[in-house]
């Protein structure tokens, strides 16, 4: 029998968690053990009912990601030289250039990947972490927010790849050449740090009710 479609039938009832049943579930493979068991025999992962150290890692990486996002926006991402004239453009400057050329769709993609996604990720991760620290139980929508954040982070890397491709391709001596600026490095770091921050989350914490303070 498939579990599909059964989801709605039991949504109203509170779901019994492994922790409430005095058990611990493996975060990797889902196998269930008596509370206190050290490692999972199926996949070898260390068993913790709720990874409370995860929040420290989340905050540390998030903070690092936010700090390096500042130089990523201040310094130039690309240095374009055409017939001896050098132009430098920042992330946002690159978006405006695309709009000047009439490429609104592509400008929108770059703006989304380089500005909207990183900034909303900072806000979303901080919001989820603060909720957990205040002991507020989350709902399915908080969990879906987490899933979106986890899924979408890697797409911010687009602009770094654009810089790499342009720098490799456009090397025509005097006529035109494109070189990466320092912002490419800090932006790549910012994306990587925020991805690590999101991956550090133990999503099981999102659901917990206040009385279910971790054992």
């Amino acid at each position: 029998m498939s579990g599909d479609g059964m989801a709605n039938a039991e949504r109203a009832q509170p779901v019994l968690t492994a922790r409430a049943a005095g058990l611990v579930g493996c975060a990797e493979c889902g196998h269930v053990y008596q509370l206190g068991t050290e490692t999972c025999t199926v996949c070898g992962k260390r068993l913790v009912s709720r990874d409370m150290t995860s929040l420290q890692r989340v905050w540390a990486w998030l903070f690092a990601g936010m700090v390096v996002y500042i130089p990523a926006n201040v310094y130039p991402m690309l240095r374009t030289t055409t017939f001896g004239n050098t132009q430098e453009s920042t992330i946002v400057g690159g978006v405006f250039e695309l709009m000047d050329h009439g490429s609104y769709g592509v400008a929108l993609i770059v703006f989304f990947a380089s500005v909207i996604i990183p900034v909303s990720k900072f806000i979303a991760i901080a919001y989820l972490a603060i909720r957990i620290q205040r002991g507020k139980p989350g709902t399915a929508s908080h969990f879906h927010l987490y899933e979106v954040v986890e899924f979408i982070g890697r797409w911010s890397m687009i602009d770094v790849f654009v810089v790499a491709i342009l720098s490799a391709l456009v090397q025509l001596n005097f006529v035109a050449s494109i070189n990466p600026g320092i912002a490419a490095v800090s932006f790549a770091l910012s994306v990587a740090f925020t991805m690590i921050s999101a991956n550090s989350f133990d999503p099981r914490l999102i659901w917990d009710a206040p009385e279910g303070k971790p054992v």
């Binding site: 968690t17 492994a18 058990l23 579930g25 889902g30 999102i206």
Partner: peptide, 14 residues
Amino acid sequence: SLSDMIACPKCDGL
């Protein structure tokens, strides 16, 4: 027995 159960890795639902 415990092997008949599975805990959701994302929300701990049993």
